[in-house]
């Protein structure tokens, strides 16, 4: 059958920071082609296409719909594959190769994780399921 693309609206202006990204103006309506766990979604708008941050988009049809999966307070084991230094107070600073537990996989790509009973946000793009080869 035909591919039905989901339509989203930009809730804020976004200035792209690399050539594969697409800039957004508040109110822009885009078709989402691919949703990545990293929080980058590949979108097209008229003749433009590129990656945009998922958190800058809301569903056009059902803006109140919560799409994020439920938190898993038991935690899912992951390993950091790149170091990250927290920029905001609610983020965690971790080195590469640290074992952590993922509690909440948010669609914006910033997951709630736990390390030694401390919780905070961490970029999912720097995480990999424990026990897998890089």
């Amino acid at each position: 059958g035909p591919i039905i693309l989901q339509t989203y609206r930009a809730i804020a202006d976004y200035a792209k920071s690399s050539s594969t990204e697409m800039a957004l103006a508040t109110g822009d309506v885009v078709d989402v082609v691919e949703k990545g766990e990293s929080g980058w979604w590949f979108c097209q708008m008229k003749t433009k296409r590129g990656w945009v941050p998922a958190s800058y988009l809301e569903p056009l049809d059902s803006p109140d719909e919560a799409e994020d999966p439920e938190p898993n307070y038991a935690g899912e084991p992951y390993v950091t594959i790149k170091a990250y230094t927290a920029l905001l107070e609610d983020e965690l600073t971790l080195q590469e190769g640290e074992n952590i537990e993922v509690i909440h996989k948010l669609l914006d790509g910033w997951w709630v994780i736990r390390k030694d009973d401390v919780t905070g946000y961490f970029p999912s793009i720097y995480l990999q399921k424990a026990g897998q080869d890089i």
Partner: peptide, 22 residues
């Protein structure tokens, strides 16, 4: 073809998204 996504983390949600009641 779809290009590779950026290798850096996306920005944190904009203020507009945080204002929404949860």
């Amino acid at each position: 073809t779809i290009k590779q996504p950026p290798s850096n983390p996306p920005p944190r949600p904009p203020v507009e998204a945080r204002k929404k009641p949860s």
